[in-house]
Nucleic acid binder design. Structure first.
Length: 868
RNA sequence: GCGGGUGUGGCGGAAUCGGUAGACGCAGCAGACUUAAAAUCUGUUGCCCGACAGGGCGUGCGGGUUCAAGUCCCGCCAUCCGCACCA
C-alpha cells in the first residue's frame, strides 16, 4: 500500500496507473486477430473524435457508454473489438494555421498526442494497437484507392454546383462561416458561385438506403424516421407547360408536383432563381436580374432559404393550362423554389399548399378550391391551405374522384397527351465531396488539357498532402504551392495539373469502421478481417449525426459491397445516440467568457471571478462549447478525484440519451461512492478474517436477515444486467447504490457476515465496468486468488433467490389509493378482493357506499368502483 | 420554414404492459461521533391543511378516452438537434 496517504482512504493516485498498467501488460483489451473460434465476436465503436486538443466531458461520456458495453460483453464471454482513432482532417486546423501560424499537420499531431494521453488516463478498455488518424497517408491513400474504384464503377461524377463565395477573402465558405448572409471574417456579402465539383451518386442507392432502414431493428426509431424523411421518396408527376411567348428559345417549362390532382387549382408558376428560364429573363430584364441577384446572396443553406420571407418577381410571362383551353397563368421567380429539388419549377395551387397560399396572399394571386373535404363541401380557403383528403371539384374530368384516384387519372391523361409522366422523386441529392481546402485528403485526379480528368495511377498513391504550405494568402494553399500541382499527365505525358480540391471530411468517416478491422492492410480492407468483425454490433455517438454521417456511412458500405471490399450492406447493426453535456456559462460585466474554475460561486447565488473579485453574470445552461468556455476539463477532475469518480459520475445521474449538466456536487457524490466501495471491501475482509470456516461456507444462515440480503444481491445481478443491456446505466447505478446500502446495513452482524461478503464481492464485480480501478483494488483485498476482475466472468443470479413469493397490491377506491395488502404471488381475484375488503382502511373508505364494480389485476391492483 | 426529440419535487432523475408517482443520487434540515473541522453514521424531506390520525392537490398548458393516464388520443406552449461546406 502507498504509505503517503491515510490508511483509511483508497488512494486512487497510486492505484489507477497501477491497474491500467496491469491490464495493458496482460493485453486484456487487445482484440484477437486470430481467434480460436470458440467465442462470439462483439464490435463496439464510438464515433471517433475530431482532435480539437483536449478531451471534454462530452467525450468522456461518449466513450464511457461504449466502455461499459465493452467490459460487460467481455465478461459475458465475447471477443470484443473496441478501437480508437482520430477524425483528423477539417477546418479548425486551417483556422489555427491562419490565426496562429501553426502548420495544420503539427497542430493536429500535437492535439492527438494530448487527447490520447487524456483518454488513457480515463482507463478505457480500448485496443490502442489499432489506432490511426485519417490524416495518416496510409489511411487516406487507401481512401484515394477507394475513390478511384468508385469512379471506375460509375459511382462518382463531376458536375457544377453552387458554393458560398466570399468576394473579399476570395474563398469558399462553409455554411457555418456564413452569418446573416455575410462572411464571418470579412463581413462581405456572400455570393453563390457555381463550380465544377465531384459528386458521389448516393441517389442511385436511394431506394436501397430507404428499404434498408426497415432492417435496422436496433436503431432508434427517431433516427430511422429522420433518415426516411431525408431520403424523401415522393411519387408525383413531371410535365411541361407551354409558354405563351417563348424566351431565348425556351418554349416550355417542366414542372414537378406531388399533387398533380390539384392541377385545376393552379394559379401561377414559380421558378427557382437559378432556373434557366429565370436566368434568361434576368438577362433581358434588369429588375429580374436584381431580384435573382438578391436571392443569390442568401447563401446555399436550406435552413436560411426556407426560413426567409417568401418573395417573388413577376416575369410578365404566361403559361397555358394543359387541360383548360385558353386559361393562362403568370410565371414568377420565387425565392422558396429550389433548383436542386424536382425540376426547379412548380405550379402553385394556393388552396392546397401552405407555401403557395402565403405567396398568393402576398401577391394577390387567385385561389381556387379543387379538393373539398367530405364533411365540408363548401370549403373556403383564407390563410390556411387544405392539405387533407377529399373529393375533387372544379376540375373537369377529375371531379368526384378522391385525391389518390385523381393523381392516377391526371397522370394517365398527361401521359396520353404526351405532356408528361408519373415519376418517383427523391429529396436526397447527390453528395458533393469536393472542398476547396488544404487540410483534407487530396482527390487523386490529374487534369490534362488533352485527356481531361485522369485518375492518378495506383502505384503513385497515396497522393500526399504537401506540408510546406503557406497560409499568408487567401484561398487554397494547394493552389499556391510552387510545385505540388504541376505533374505530367499519366496518359499522354503532357504537362497537366493535379486536382487541388480535397475530400469532404465526411468521406474520411464513412469507412473508418471497416478499416479498424485491419488498420494496416495494403488494400482498403482485409476481407477476412472485415468478415470476422463487421458489422459494428454497437455504434455510439451524438444525435447530431443522425442523418448525414450515418447515411453517408450506409451509402459507402453499399458501394464498397458492390466492389467486394466488404461483405455486407449495413455497417451498424445497433445504434445508440447520446445526449449532450451542458454547463452554466459565465461572463464578466465587460463581456469576457470565463471557465467554470475561474469563477467562485456564493451561497446567495451570485458569483465572482476568482482572480479579480469582479461580478460574474451567471448565464444559461447550454451545450458545452469552447467559444462560451462553459467546458469542464476532465483532466483536472481526474487529477482531483480520480478517473473512477469521473467515470461513475458521467453515467450516474442521467439517462445517456438525454443532455447532462455537469455539477461539482455530483462529482463529489461520485467520489464518496468510490471511497465507500473500498471501505466496504476492507470491512468485509476484516470480518472474514475473524470468521470460522463453518460460517464462511454458509452464507444462507437462518434468521438475521441473511437470506433477505442474498435475495437483494441476486436481484441486483438481474436488475443491473438488464439495465446495462438496455443502456440504462443510470438505473444500473441506482441499483448498485441500493446493494451498497443493503451491504452497509449488515455491517457488524455476525449472522450476516457471509451473505455480506457475497453482496460486496458481487457489488464490486457489477460495478467494475464503470469503476474498474477501485474494483480491482477492492477485489484484491477480498479474493486475490481469483486474479483480475477484468478477466472474470459476469456474475450469475441464482433464480431461487431472485424469485418473489409475496407481493404488495395497491387497493383503490374510485381510482384513488386507499391502502395496500400483501398477498402470495398469483393470488386469485376472489381471494384478493376479500382480503382488500377485510382491510381496516379500505373498509372505512367504503363505508356507506355501494360497490358497483370490482377490478382486479393479478399481483398489481384491486379497484372498487362505488356509488354513494 | 421543414423534419425529429424533450418537458416529472429545491436539483439530476425512476416508474417493461395504462395499475401504489417521486426508486437512487445531490442539496437541505435535525441528531450522533469530534476540543473543533472534515470524513462517517442515523433520522427526515413533493406541495397545501392538520398536533396526530388523516385529507386535498400534484408529472409544461388545455381538452378527451378509461374502473384507472407521467404513460394512450386531439390541440397548444417552451426548449433542444438536424437541414446537405462544423464535425
Amino acid at each position: 500500500m502507498d504509505q503517503t496517504t491515510s490508511d483509511l482512504a483508497y488512494d486512487f493516485r497510486a492505484a489507477e496507473p497501477r491497474w491500467q498498467e496491469a491490464w495493458t501488460k496482460r493485453g486484456c483489451f487487445r482484440a484477437e486477430d486470430r481467434p480460436d473460434g470458440t467465442k462470439p465476436k462483439y464490435y463496439v465503436l464510438e464515433m471517433f473524435p475530431y482532435p480539437s486538443g483536449k478531451i471534454h466531458m462530452g467525450h468522456v461520456r461518449n466513450y464511457m457508454l461504449g466502455e461499459v458495453v465493452a467490459r460487460y460483453k467481455r465478461a459475458r464471454g465475447f471477443d470484443v473489438l473496441h478501437p480508437m482513432g482520430w477524425d483528423a482532417f477539417g477546418l479548425p486546423a486551417e483556422n489555427a494555421a491562419r490565426e496562429r501560424g501553426i502548420a495544420p499537420a503539427v497542430w493536429t499531431r500535437e492535439n492527438i498526442a494530448a487527447m490520447r494521453a487524456d483518454l488513457q488516463r480515463v482507463g478505457l478498455a480500448l485496443d490502442w494497437s489499432r489506432e490511426f488518424a485519417t490524416c495518416d497517408p496510409e489511411y487516406y491513400g487507401q481512401q484515394q484507392k477507394l475513390f478511384l474504384d468508385f469512379w471506375r464503377a460509375g459511382f462518382a461524377l463531376r458536375r457544377e454546383s453552387a458554393v458560398n463565395w466570399d468576394p473579399v477573402d476570395q474563398t469558399v465558405l462553409a455554411n457555418e462561416q456564413v452569418i446573416d448572409g455575410r462572411g464571418w471574417k470579412s463581413g462581405a456579402l456572400v455570393e453563390k458561385r457555381r463550380l465544377r465539383q465531384w459528386f458521389l451518386k448516393i441517389t442511385d442507392f436511394a431506394e436501397d438506403l430507404l428499404a434498408g432502414l426497415d432492417t435496422l431493428e436496433r436503431w432508434p426509431e427517431r433516427v430511422r424516421v429522420m433518415q426516411r424523411n431525408w431520403i424523401g421518396r415522393s411519387e408525383g408527376a413531371e410535365f411541361s407547360l407551354r409558354l405563351i411567348t417563348p424566351v431565348a428559345g425556351i418554349d416550355r417549362v417542366v414542372v414537378y408536383s406531388t399533387r398533380p390532382d390539384t392541377l385545376f387549382g393552379m394559379s401561377f408558376l414559380a421558378l427557382a432563381p437559378d432556373h434557366p428560364l429565370a436566368m434568361a429573363v434576368g438577362a433581358a430584364n434588369r429588375d429580374a436580374a436584381a431580384f435573382i441577384a438578391e436571392c443569390q446572396s442568401a447563401g446555399t443553406s436550406e435552413a436560411v432559404i426556407e426560413a426567409a420571407e417568401k418573395r417573388g418577381f413577376d416575369t410578365g410571362l404566361c403559361v397555358a393550362h394543359p387541360f383548360i383551353a385558353g386559361a393562362t397563368y403568370p410565371v414568377w421567380i420565387a425565392n422558396f423554389v429550389l433548383m436542386d429539388y424536382g425540376t426547379g419549377a412548380i405550379f402553385g395551387c394556393p388552396a392546397h399548399d401552405q407555401r403557395d397560399i402565403e405567396f398568393a396572399r402576398k401577391y394577390g394571386l387567385g385561389v381556387t378550391v379543387v379538393v373539398a373535404p367530405k364533411d365540408e363541401p363548401d370549403l373556403a380557403v383564407t390563410d390556411k391551405a387544405f392539405i387533407g383528403d377529399g373529393l375533387i371539384v372544379n376540375s373537369g374530368f377529375l371531379d368526384g374522384l378522391d385525391v389518390q384516384a385523381a393523381k392516377s387519372r391526371v397522370i394517365a391523361e398527361l401521359e396520353a397527351r404526351g405532356l408528361g409522366r408519373g415519376v418517383v422523386n427523391w429529396r436526397l441529392r447527390d453528395w458533393g465531396i469536393s472542398r476547396q481546402r488544404y487540410w483534407g485528403c487530396p482527390i487523386p485526379v490529374i487534369h490534362c488539357e488533352i485527356c481531361g480528368a485522369v485518375p492518378v495511377p495506383e502505384k503513385q498513391l497515396p497522393v500526399r498532402l504537401p506540408e510546406d504550405v503557406a497560409f499568408d494568402k487567401p484561398g487554397n494553399p494547394l493552389d499556391h504551392h510552387p510545385t505540388w500541382k504541376h505533374v505530367a499527365c499519366p496518359q499522354c505525358g503532357a504537362a497537366a495539373t493535379r486536382e487541388t480540391d480535397t475530400f469532404d471530411t465526411f468521406v474520411d468517416s464513412s469507412w473508418y469502421f471497416a478499416r479498424f478491422c485491419a488498420p494496416h492492410a495494403a488494400s482498403p480492407t482485409d476481407r477476412a478481417a472485415v468478415d470476422r468483425w463487421m458489422p459494428v454490433d454497437q455504434y455510439i455517438g451524438g444525435i447530431e449525426h443522425a442523418i448525414l454521417h450515418l447515411l453517408y456511412a450506409r451509402f459507402f458500405t453499399r458501394a464498397m459491397h458492390r466492389l467486394g471490399h466488404v461483405g455486407l450492406q449495413e455497417p451498424f447493426a445497433g445504434l445508440f445516440t447520446q445526449g449532450m453535456l451542458t454547463h452554466e456559462s459565465y461572463r464578466t460585466e465587460d463581456g469576457r467568457w470565463l471557465y467554470p474554475d475561474e469563477v467562485a460561486k456564493h451561497p446567495d447565488g451570485t458569483a465572482t471571478e476568482r482572480a479579480t473579485g469582479a461580478t460574474v453574470i451567471v448565464g444559461a445552461i447550454e451545450k458545452m462549447s469552447k467559444s462560451k468556455r462553459n467546458t469542464v476539463d476532465p483532466s483536472a477532475v481526474i487529477e482531483r478525484f480520480g478517473a473512477d469518480t469521473v467515470r461513475w459520475f458521467v453515467l450516474s445521474d442521467n439517462p445517456p440519451e438525454r443532455d447532462v449538466e455537469w455539477t461539482e456536487a455530483g462529482a463529489q457524490g461520485a467520489f464518496r461512492f468510490v471511497q465507500r466501495l473500498y471501505r466496504l471491501a476492507r470491512g468485509v475482509a476484516a470480518e472474514f478474517a475473524d470468521m470460522t470456516p463453518l460460517d464462511r461456507a454458509s452464507p444462507d444462515q437462518a434468521g438475521g436477515g441473511a437470506r433477505a440480503l442474498r435475495q437483494t444481491t441476486h436481484r441486483t445481478i438481474t436488475a443491473v444486467t438488464e439495465a446495462i443491456e438496455a443502456f440504462a446505466f443510470n438505473v444500473a447505478i441506482a441499483r448498485l447504490y441500493e446493494l451498497a446500502n443493503a451491504a452497509g446495513e449488515a455491517e457488524g452482524k455476525p449472522a450476516m457476515a457471509a451473505a455480506r461478503r457475497e453482496a460486496v464481492i458481487t457489488l464490486i464485480r457489477l460495478a467494475a465496468p464503470i469503476v474498474p480501478h477501485v474494483a480491482e483494488e477492492a477485489h484484491a483485498l477480498l479474493a486475490p486468488e481469483q486474479g483480475l476482475v477484468a478477466d472474470l466472468p459476469w456474475p450469475e443470479a441464482d433464480p431461487d433467490l431472485v424469485r418473489r413469493d409475496r407481493v404488495t397490491l395497491a387497493v383503490q377506491v374510485m381510482g384513488k389509493l386507499r391502502g395496500t395488502i400483501e398477498l402470495p404471488l398469483g393470488t386469485d381475484a376472489e381471494t384478493a378482493i376479500t382480503a382488500a375488503l377485510a382491510d381496516r382502511k379500505i373498509a372505512r373508505a367504503l363505508e356507506g357506499a355501494t360497490i358497483v364494480k370490482r377490478v382486479h389485476v393479478p399481483d398489481r391492483i384491486v379497484n372498487f368502483v362505488v356509488r354513494t
